[in-house]
């Protein structure tokens, strides 16, 4: 227990941990502030203005269709009509019905908590996961790099206990930050919705759904922190984890994506990691293969689809953690420390 407390202290004392956490929280705060200033509450004045703009748009459509019908009839009468420009019967050129132009199209952007909050949990999880990854990698990588790990092992010559205690301290520290940030995130957007949107229709089911999505976001951050920690421990340097992550992104994602696209592979996104991160957060991502039929605007042909579910993502995350952490523990146990 003393080792765990000491490692928590070490984590909190590290300058990189403090700066990375602060930076992550500032970015999250900037998102909340940005959403606050780009939305506004919808009241009678905004509704009236939207109605007025919808009417103006309808009148413009009426004027345009009348001009076009007149031009069509003139061209037909003069025999100068281009074959594909006008229909056979000029009377079919008519304005859209008034109800087809909706006032809501002209409403300013507003933050509906029930509609929009779920989407904000994606950047929340992504920023937390990024902070978790780099802090996790740096926490153990710097220890290896500066000889701190060797010093510690002279005091506690149980390698696996030391490494796992460090990981436990990292994950519990990250969990504390993530849960606090999540509470602030919920509260922040509730305030945004209150002053710049709507908090209506929030049922217990909606709250439960948001809470579960937030929880999955926190789990994603913990998984990536573990992966960063394990990779840095494997290479005994922070750069191993960061280099590995960049390598996976550049080679494994961008290059693979281009290659799969060029090869015309069906559902190419199913091979890319971000798809699984999205599926983990949104519970399901539906991929579409537009080559599977000649889809038309009339909607007669639907493309083939492939669902990536959060359960499949959870298997991938679990395998990733087991492989990287297992390798880190194995090398910690077997390799000499010099």
């Amino acid at each position: 227990m003393s080792l765990y407390r000491t490692e928590l202290r070490r984590l909190a004392k590290r300058r990189f941990t403090r700066w990375a956490t602060l930076l992550g929280l500032l970015v999250l705060a900037a998102v909340v502030v940005g959403v606050f200033f780009t939305n506004e509450k919808i009241g009678p004045a905004q509704l009236a203005q939207a109605e007025q703009r919808a009417e103006q748009e309808y009148q413009q459509q009426v004027r345009w269709s009348e001009q076009e019908r007149a031009a069509c009839e003139a061209a037909k009468a003069g025999g100068t009509a281009e074959p594909d420009r006008y229909p056979e019967d000029c009377s079919v050129i008519s304005p859209p019905p008034r109800e087809a132009i909706e006032a809501q199209w002209f409403l300013p952007s507003t933050f509906d908590f029930r509609e929009s909050f779920g989407f904000t949990l994606l950047p929340f999880a992504a920023i937390l996961a990024l902070v978790g990854f780099v802090v996790g990698a740096s926490f153990v990588g710097a220890e290896w790099n500066t000889g701190g790990m060797m010093n510690l092992l002279l005091w506690r010559p149980k390698r696996l206990t030391v490494l796992l205690t460090k990981l436990a301290a990292l994950l519990s520290g990250l969990l504390a930050v993530a849960l606090s940030a999540a509470v602030l995130w919920f509260a922040g957007f509730w305030l945004v919705a209150t002053f710049r949107g709507s908090t209506e229709k929030m049922t217990s089911g909606a709250w439960q759904s948001f809470a579960l999505t937030g929880l999955r976001g926190v789990v994603l951050a913990l998984v990536l922190a573990t992966a960063g920690f394990a990779l840095a421990s494997l290479g005994r340097h922070t750069a191993m984890a960061l280099g590995g992550a960049i390598g996976v992104m550049v080679v494994g994602q961008f290059a693979l994506g281009i290659l799969l696209d060029m090869a015309g592979v069906r559902f190419a996104e199913a091979w890319l990691l971000p798809t699984y991160a999205m599926a983990w957060m949104q519970k399901k991502v539906t991929l579409q293969d537009w080559q599977s039929c000649n889809a038309t605007f009339s909607g007669e042909c639907q493309p083939a689809t492939l669902d990536i579910t959060w359960q499949q993502s959870s298997v991938l995350l679990a395998v990733g953690v087991i492989v990287t952490l297992g390798a880190a523990l194995w090398t910690m146990r077997r390799r000499d420390i010099s």
Binding site: S2, L3, R9, K13, R14, E143, T146, G148, N151
Partner: peptide, 18 residues
């Protein structure tokens, strides 16, 4: 070899804690 950004007292305190 010690973590360069910690003070001597912090370094010893962390070892003593462990």
């Amino acid at each position: 070899q010690f973590f360069p950004h910690f003070s001597a007292r912090d370094t010893l305190s962390l070892l003593a804690g462990a």
